[in-house]
Design a protein around this nucleic acid. Structure first.
Length: 313
DNA sequence: AAATATTCCAACCGCATTCTA
DNA sequence: CTAGAATGCGGTTGGAATATT
């Protein structure tokens, strides 16, 4: 038993509003107001529409002083700050932005602002502060951490390293119609003051998968966001999930066919546990965009755990 | 130029809350 | 006080517009 419909759907017009319908609704409300009864309004206004539909059309489009078009930086900041604090309470957020409707803000967030945020990493905890040592679940930490409103600016211009200082190797190959080219590598020695995302983006050929050794946390975000189609591999002794006990961790985001390149890089740089890792890579049937994590525990046993590398979207 | 994919947003849907008889 | 109606809200979707292949 579902809820009774608010109107007879068969006798009511649906879909986009015509200019004539808009005019009728506008004229009626300007002359008589809503009368506090949306259900009765369409009939009085001579519209074959559901009352709910009329209400929505009026509130989101026809009522005076509705602002359409580009959102300003200030509006972005307000939306970001409020979203970080109260989540998707669109009507409350809209209340802080004169002329904007909840629907408009919701759409803007879902289609544009969220992506913008991802790139600027607003949703990460303050990158200048290393996470506490006693966390064992980085994802939990991330989502429960204090709101990013503690930022001096809600939209930091770039990511930065926290207080780590890892030599970081980036390796990439270009992707052409002939297939993948030979691997090329670059060694970064990233200092805490370096702008990681910026250097990654400068380095990374736009359409290349990326392999990275070293780095942690936001380096991983940088790798994922600056790599082609999410194809990146990251080998780190300080990963997203095991900062607390300082287990070695290898985070991999690999696409199928990458086994060879991984092996080559591992050989070339004489990583510890190379054999175990290579074994895991070859025995796991890695598919495109799959993400695996490998942990090396105190007994130097490599353990694999399939998990999504954290992405905030 | 055509086909296909992606983006965007107005509108819909159904649940939750508030109102009112 | 209570049940049913009305309204508010946020997630989802259809399809037009635009971009890409």
């Amino acid at each position: 038993m579902g809820r009774a419909p608010c109107c007879d759907k068969a006798s009511v017009k649906r879909g986009p509003w015509s200019p004539e319908e808009d005019q009728k609704l506008k004229d009626y409300i300007e002359k008589h107001g809503t009368g506090g009864n949306w259900i009765a309004l369409p009939q009085k206004a001579g519209l074959r529409r559901c009352g709910k539909s009329c209400r929505l059309r009026w509130l989101n489009y026809l009522r005076p002083n509705i602002k359409h078009g580009e959102f300003s930086d200030d509006e972005d900041r307000i939306i970001c700050t409020l979203f970080a604090n109260i989540g998707s309470r669109w009507s409350i957020i809209a209340g802080q932005l004169p002329g904007r409707t909840d629907n408009d803000i919701k759409n803007y967030w879902n289609t544009k602002l969220k992506k913008k945020l991802l790139m600027s990493s607003l949703m990460l905890p303050n990158p200048f502060v290393r996470p506490p040592n006693n966390i064992n679940n980085y994802q939990q930490y991330l989502f429960s951490s204090p709101s990013p409103s503690s930022y001096s600016s809600p939209l930091p211009p770039t990511l930065r390293l926290c207080d780590n200082n890892y030599p970081t190797l980036g390796a990439s190959r270009s992707f052409t119609s002939e297939g993948f080219s030979n691997i090329s590598t670059t060694l970064f020695n990233i200092q805490p003051q370096d702008q990681v995302l910026g250097s990654m983006q400068n380095y990374q050929e736009k359409e290349s998968p990326l392999i990275m050794f070293g780095g942690a946390g936001d380096d991983q975000q940088a790798a994922s966001s600056s790599s082609y189609d999410e194809q990146f591999m990251m080998f780190s002794n300080c990963g997203m999930n095991s900062i607390a006990d300082e287990q070695k961790q290898v985070n991999l985001g690999v696409s199928s066919g990458d086994h060879e390149i991984v092996s080559n890089v591992l050989d070339q740089y004489n990583m510890s546990c190379v054999e175990e890792i290579k074994q895991l890579i070859s025995t796991n049937n890695l598919s495109c965009n799959s993400n695996l994590s490998f942990f090396v525990d105190e007994n130097k046993t490599v353990r694999s755990e399939e998990e999504k590398v954290l992405m905030y979207y």
